[in-house]
Nucleic acid binder design. Structure first.
Length: 564
RNA sequence: UGGGGGAUAGUUUAGUGGUAGAACUACGGAUUCUGACUCCGUCAGCCUAGGUUCGAAUCCUGGUCCCCCAGCCA
């Protein structure tokens, strides 16, 4: 591995290195800033991995900090789920912090702002606040409460905090500039009143809660964060971020740096849309393997290594082509999983759509065992024994009565190799009254034991098989992309772009016996088919596999192009 | 309408004044007891118009197109 070409550093690396070089900072600390109001998806994981990478590359640390400043949206359940996902990804966080643990410090700063004449309690209704904010190209109007006395502001804020006023009746605002071109600077709201529900950590101790802008920079500062990395839609919040830190005269102010967000083709990423998929039952929950959430991807069989590789290959930039970022082709993600699983996972034979084969010249009652390689990419994985007998199952796709051009699997009178076993020739086709194919009568070549003919003749195809009397039945869920449109919603409602074939469950699959005791989450390559893992719905009665991703399939392409 | 940001093959991404390079995709081929893996090859790009320069993706000027912002969400 001497010739591995390191990825060039990102623009963030460049900026951080500069800060270190010119003495703005002497070390690096970043933070993962999730709001515990939902499950993490692949887009979050990228943001997190960027934070991790920057910290690691500069010998710094990364914290996990929950931005739990809005009790109406946040729950303990998500706090736990997020920590699980972070752990699963393998991110080693230095500290787990909660914005809510620092409400008092933030409140003290608000009091300081009032004393400085930089903050005031506004009694306007939400509607008035909104109207008086003005619009693009039109300045806002100063609130009639803007020039209240320090004493009155202090008193009012104290009573807001204690819960003397109803929700929505007042807010604390910074006094900046109602005519500013940047909307965020038009007297932003610092605190709003929220009585219900209780906060997941502070209970009913507070009746006011800080807004994102008011909390973010100060939290970063008090936790010693040097570089506050976030996505690009926060770029025009940066002036406000800096304004608070400067106005409060906070030493060693952290630096916010923004990067473009990650979107995927054939996927939706917004929390709103994902929630709709769940709530309207288009998928079976947040961990449905078709979802882009990390728990879903885990269940589907994606590995942290594959996700990390993917994020790495995508890189970091500020490019913006769509919804605040860049839209990466899912096929890159799929390529990354295949790469990882190919190296690590054992091979097995599994017949998804069984077609019965009787080998007429094979002795009834006889059973042989063949040795099969577990992983050609990893000799240390060794071999296993696979039983063979007179009645087998092969894949329906591996036989064609009227083969199209370029089809070189089994055909009437044709010969193929049964992987690791014998050459097999199809002699007769058996059908039911309505003409459906139900069975193949075949013969084998006893002189091809192990897979090579004594006379040296070749076959064009090798197919997988399972001995009928030894087979383990199972269900297999074939997952495909959730949407059939690379850019869901590009022509109307994204629900209309749902792929009707995103899940197909097969109930009559036949697996080689070594799979009988496969454990939940264990992954395998079913040869010639794809990568599959044991689903958590499995029990001692029934094995259920999820297809993580197919193998690349040249034949499928030929068929798609009309060749088959 | 005001503010902020972005533009290099189909998709991502390097390149920071000196021959535009990579990955994924697509296509073709070699190999193969997985139509997999591996290997080789092909197609394909600097948003645009000027300027500076011996030389511009890179510097300057003017356009064009795309994204984000008017929550008491984050």
């Amino acid at each position: 591995m001497t010739d591995e070409t390191p990825k060039p550093p990102s623009f963030i690396h460049t900026a951080v290195a500069e800060d270190l070089h010119n003495g703005r900072f002497s070390h690096v600390r970043t933070r993962l800033p999730p709001e515990p109001n939902g499950y993490l998806h692949i887009g979050h994981s990228r943001a997190f991995l960027i934070d991790e990478k920057i910290a690691k590359d500069f010998g710094g640390k990364v914290d996990l900090r929950f931005d739990d400043t809005n009790p109406t949206k946040e729950e303990t359940e998500f706090v736990e789920a997020i920590q699980d996902d972070v752990k699963w990804l393998g991110i080693q966080v230095d500290r787990v912090l909660y914005a809510s643990d620092y409400f008092q410090l933030l409140y003290d700063w608000a009091i300081k702002m009032i004393h400085m004449g930089k903050a005031y309690v506004d009694d306007q209704t939400p509607d008035e606040v909104s109207k008086n904010r003005g619009s693009w190209g039109e300045p806002g109007k100063n609130s009639p409460y803007r020039e209240r006395s320090v004493a009155e502001n202090l008193d009012l804020l104290e009573r807001m905090k204690k819960g003397e006023f109803p929700d929505g009746s007042r807010v604390l605002r910074a006094k900046i500039d109602m005519a500013h071109g940047n909307m965020n600077m038009r007297d932003p709201i610092l605190y709003r009143i929220i009585h219900e529900p209780d906060h997941h950590r502070t209970g009913n101790e507070w009746c006011i809660y800080p807004m994102y802008d008011w909390a973010q920079g100060q939290n970063d500062a008090m936790h010693g964060v040097t570089h506050s990395l976030c996505s690009i839609e926060y770029e025009d919040h940066r002036p406000l971020y800096d304004w608070f830190l400067q106005t409060l005269e906070i030493p060693n102010p952290p630096r916010q740096i923004e990067f473009g967000r990650l979107n995927l083709t054939y996927t939706v990423m917004s929390k709103r849309k994902l929630r709709r998929l769940v709530e309207e039952n288009y998928v079976n929950g947040w961990n449905d393997p078709r979802m882009p959430t990390l728990r879903a991807m885990k269940r589907r069989g994606y590995t942290p290594a594959a996700i990390r590789d993917f994020i790495d290959r995508v890189g970091i930039s500020k490019t913006i082509n769509s919804s605040s970022g860049v839209t990466v082709d899912v096929s890159l993600l799929e390529a990354c999983v295949r790469d990882d699983l190919n190296k690590k996972v054992e091979r097995r034979m599994a017949v998804l759509n069984p077609l019965k084969v009787v080998i007429e010249n094979y002795p009834e009652g006889q059973v042989e065992e063949f040795s099969a390689i577990n992983n050609p990419e990893d000799p240390a994985a060794g071999t296993r024994r696979v039983p063979f007998s007179r009645v087998l199952y092969i894949e329906q796709d591996d036989f064609r009565e009227n083969p199209p051009p370029k089809y070189f699997r089994l055909t009437p009178g044709g010969e193929v190799r049964l992987r690791y076993a014998y050459f097999l020739k199809c002699e007769r086709v058996i059908k039911d009254e309505s003409g459906n194919l139900i069975e193949l009568r075949c013969t084998y070549d006893p002189n091809s034991r192990g897979g090579n003919a004594a006379d040296g003749r070749k076959v064009k195809a090798t197919i997988h098989w399972v001995s009928a009397q030894h087979a383990v039945p199972a269900s297999v869920r074939l997952y495909d992309r959730l949407f059939s449109n690379p850019n869901p919603e590009s022509n109307g409602d994204f629900i209309a772009d749902l792929n009707p074939n995103s899940l197909k469950q097969l109930e009559n699959c036949q697996l080689e016996p070594s799979l009988a005791h496969a454990k939940v989450e264990e992954s395998f390559q079913f040869e010639r088919l794809g990568y599959f893992c044991v689903d958590s719905d499995s029990n001692s009665e029934r094995l259920i596999f999820n297809r993580t991703v197919t193998l690349k399939d040249e034949w499928a392409k030929i068929v798609q192009q009309g060749g088959g």
